[in-house]
């Protein structure tokens, strides 16, 4: 479904961050990407979604056979790619409801009626334990960290993508909020839904159980395994990864 080959990504300030990364995500699979700060996890997520400040300098990314890198962010979204932002933008004056209406109708082939949209939003807000008044608030403006993350997963549920990239959605969440966020993601789980869960900590993986775990270091995936790799990482820490796979010990 998603195939990343030898991907290289640079940012204007800071040079090359992702340095030849390979990853394949099949239909219905949940992949976790773990790694210390600065290993290039968020850069990978932003490049996959097409952020203009991240420049792809090499490699390829195909999604269901299409060259993802040729597409604008909105076109990627319409193909079924979704990213939950680590730091969602505040958009003053644009209400959550208005934004979701525009977004849902952009990705769907047929527009939803106002009533269908209303029902769908009510239903998904219930899953995310979000108060209905939330819909009239301006997008992310004045939201707490937890509200922002719930709002990201609410959008995931509304848009029903085929592939979701969760960029450190767990960071800054208390355990209750984390469980609500995980419930939202698990609600999507099924043979047609794949996800890349990017995280620093293994905590979220207790609630969203991955099929595969990859460890990223210095712009590459240095080792991969099943969900037991997350536990090993938790026990041994990133220093162990650096010693095993860091610069100077490249195989």
């Amino acid at each position: 479904m998603l195939k990343i080959e030898n991907l290289r990504v640079a940012v204007e300030e800071g040079g090359e961050i992702v340095k030849g990364l390979d990853l394949e995500v099949g239909r219905g699979e949940i992949h976790a990407i773990m790694g210390p700060n600065g290993s290039g996890k968020s850069t990978l997520a932003n490049a996959l979604m097409g952020h203009p400040r991240y420049e792809v300098t090499g490699g390829s990314v195909t999604f269901e056979g299409e060259d993802l890198l040729e597409l604008e962010p909105d076109e990627r979204a319409r193909l079924g790619v979704f990213m939950a932002f680590q730091y969602p933008s505040e958009v003053p004056g644009v209400s959550v409801a208005n934004f979701l209406r525009t977004a849902v109708n952009s990705v769907r082939e047929e527009e939803l009626s106002a009533m269908e949209m209303y029902r769908l939003l009510q239903e998904k807000m219930r899953v995310m334990q979000i108060d209905p008044s939330f819909a009239e608030r301006y997008l992310n403006e004045g939201f707490s960290g937890g509200e922002k993350k719930r709002n990201e997963i609410l959008q995931l549920l509304m848009l029903q993508p085929k592939l979701a990239i969760l960029d450190e959605t767990d960071s800054g969440l208390d355990i209750d909020a984390l469980q609500v966020v995980a419930r939202g993601v698990n609600e999507m789980r099924g043979p047609e839904f794949s996800a890349i869960v990017i995280t620093h900590y293994s905590r979220i993986l207790r609630y969203i159980e991955p099929d595969y775990v990859h460890v990223m270091l210095d712009g590459r995936i240095v080792t991969s395994g099943g969900k037991e790799l997350a536990d090993e990482l938790e026990a041994k820490g990133y220093d162990w990864v650096r010693q095993e796979f860091g610069a100077g010990t490249q195989s």
Partner: peptide
């Protein structure tokens, strides 16, 4: 902001 909105499918 524009990227955020576009990432949700909005042209």
């Amino acid at each position: 902001e524009i990227f955020y909105l576009m990432s949700r499918g909005v042209p």
